[in-house]
Amino acid sequence: MQVPILKQRDYLIASIQAALTDADLLELRDELMKQVGKFRSRGVIIDVTVLDVMDSFAVRTLRSIAHMMKLRGADTVIVGIQPEVAFAMVQLGLTLTGVETALDLEEGLAFLDDQRLKERQVKGAPKRGE
């Protein structure tokens, strides 16, 4: 099972299309690592809208992807977690500490844009809209 990874501006967007096995998840991790280096991406969005279960392995892998991306200079946002999945996750004791989450792709992109804007502000670039 391949997860298509789309490059948009300096972001990578991985949209999961069907239930993933552990091997698929690890493949996704490796593929993202490869591409983030190749394209020097600054942000990664993983769209999990279709997942009807996120168990400990899935959450652990997503968390490790986010941490690895951070080390390569990219922010990761997980988008599209379903309400029931979210509640099952927290009942299981799984949280995505240190990983950003957003409602959907649009929100994920808005978050990454925001981050980039903040970075530029910190670096002393002129502020937008003032």
């Binding site: 009807d52 279960v53 996120m54 168990d55 400990s56 392995f57 379903q82 309400p83 029931e84 999945v85 509640f87 099952a88 996750m89 009942q91 299981l92």
Partner: peptide, 17 residues
């Protein structure tokens, strides 16, 4: 119902794992 289905599927995933 919906949220219980997710809960059951998640628990099954964990014990199978």
């Amino acid at each position: 119902n919906g949220s219980d289905l997710t809960v059951i599927a998640t628990a099954i995933s964990e014990v199978a794992r």
